[in-house]
C-alpha cells in the first residue's frame, strides 16, 4: 500500500473526508484513522507537518483551557465569590481571594466589588475533567471592564483577531485609539470614541467573516486607513 496525500496545505475539509491513505501518515488533532485512511472529524483547514496531518477548526463553541484570558459577565454572587458567565456550557467561579487584594470582612456585601451584570477580564486558573472552571483576576491586564461595548464573535476566530503576536489587535487599537480586550472565549470589550468603537466592531466582523483567508492584515489596514484618515504604521 503506497501512501498518498489527497489534500493540500490550508485546504478546507469536511467531516469524513479522506485526507490521506496509507499507514505512513499520522493523524493528529481534528483527524482520525479509519483502516488505512486518515479522515477529518470536524470542519477545518488542513495543516501538514511532515508526516503529521491535523486540522485547524473553523467553527465550534469555546472549550475552556487553563491559562486563557477570557471576558465574562458576573452572573451570580456566591457566599465567598462570584459566578462568571463565560459563554460556555458551564459557569465558572471567581473566588474572593482571586478577585482582589483588598481585605474583605466576613459577611460584607460582595456587590460592592462586583455587582451582577458587571463585566470582567480574567484568567482561567483551573479546568477539571468535567469542565468546571476557576478564574482569577490576579495578573497584568485583568480588571473590571467599565463602560465601552461588548461584542461576541466565534471563539475559533479569536486567533485571527489577535493576529501573530498581537499584531492585528495592536493595529486596531493604534488606528482608532480604542482600548480593546479580546477574550479567548470570543467576547470582546471595546472602549473609545463612539465613532471609533463602530469602526473597530466592523473591522472585527470583517476579520470574523474572512478568517480562513490569507492577506487579511493588509485588507484591514487599508480599511482602517480609509475610514479613520490616519496613517497606520
Amino acid at each position: 500500500m503506497t501512501a498518498k496525500l489527497h489534500i493540500q496545505e490550508r485546504q478546507i475539509v469536511v467531516p469524513g473526508q479522506v485526507l490521506a491513505t496509507g499507514l505512513e501518515y499520522l493523524p493528529s488533532k481534528g483527524t482520525y484513522r479509519h483502516n488505512d485512511t486518515i479522515r477529518a472529524n470536524r470542519i477545518g483547514l488542513v495543516q501538514i507537518d511532515g508526516k503529521v496531518i491535523k486540522t485547524i477548526p473553523l467553527a465550534g463553541r469555546y472549550l475552556p483551557k487553563r491559562g486563557d484570558t477570557v471576558v465574562g459577565r458576573i452572573s451570580d454572587v456566591l457566599i465567598s465569590g462570584w459566578r462568571v458567565d463565560l459563554h460556555t456550557m458551564v459557569d465558572s467561579v471567581l473566588s474572593l481571594k482571586e478577585a482582589t487584594n483588598e481585605y474583605i470582612k466576613r459577611g460584607e456585601d460582595l456587590t460592592r466589588y462586583f455587582a451582577l451584570d458587571d463585566w470582567i477580564s480574567c484568567k482561567i486558573t483551573q479546568v477539571t475533567s468535567q469542565n468546571l472552571v476557576d478564574v482569577s483576576m490576579r495578573g497584568p491586564g485583568l480588571f473590571k471592564l467599565e463602560g465601552g461595548t461588548i461584542i461576541e464573535v466565534d471563539s475559533q476566530k479569536v486567533p485571527r483577531i489577535i493576529g501573530a503576536r498581537g499584531s492585528m489587535v495592536r493595529m486596531l487599537k493604534k488606528a482608532t485609539d480604542c482600548n480593546v480586550v479580546v477574550g479567548q472565549n470570543g467576547v470582546i470589550w471595546i472602549k473609545g470614541e463612539p465613532d471609533m468603537e463602530v469602526i473597530v466592531i466592523r473591522s472585527i466582523r470583517l476579520i470574523e467573516q474572512n478568517s480562513h483567508l490569507q492577506g487579511l492584515t493588509e485588507t484591514i489596514k487599508e480599511f482602517l486607513e480609509d475610514l479613520t484618515g490616519n496613517e497606520v504604521e
Partner: peptide, 11 residues
C-alpha cells in the same frame, strides 16, 4: 452539525 464545528467522524 458539521457547520457547528461538532466533532463527528462522518456525515
Amino acid at each position: 452539525l458539521a457547520d457547528a464545528g461538532i466533532v463527528m467522524k462522518d456525515l
